[in-house]
Amino acid sequence: MSADHSRDPCPVVILSDFGGAFAMGVIGGCVWHGIKGFRNSPMGERHLGAVSAIKARAPVVGGNFGVWGGLFSTFDCAVKAVRKREDPWNAIIAGLFTGGSLAIRGGWRHTRNSAIMCGCLLGVMEGVGLMFQRYAAWQAKPMAPPLPEPQQAQPLGA
């Protein structure tokens, strides 16, 4: 597997992941809470309701996404630095740590369950990614060129 050139090297990529996840959360939160606020407001105040819902909730969604993405990236880099290899287990271990550390104030059981949930989620994501990679490789597999048409046997002396 070749190196992934679409991502930056490790220490600085944490900043980029924080920002990217935050931006994704804010924009997604705008859509989500805009629609929710619009639908949950009485007639005549629907636009106002949408705007106030966006103002109140979209930054929080962005913050949650950003903290999750940034923590995940931090743990991913840390796991890479410790294991000195890049494979799907990195993401799964980083997911375990992320889920655990985000739920650490809820007590030991909550931390454990959350870590396992997060690790499983990342495992599924990595598995699907691997499947797509395999499929793409299978689709783009090298093909043998078609054999040339066999020459018609000519009778001797013809």
Binding site: I14, L15, S16, D17, F18, G20, F22, A23
Partner: peptide, 13 residues
């Protein structure tokens, strides 16, 4: 996209 991600990430942190 890089400006957006790095700028937002740095200021957010």
């Amino acid at each position: 996209t890089d400006d957006l991600c790095y700028g937002t990430g740095a200021v957010y942190l």
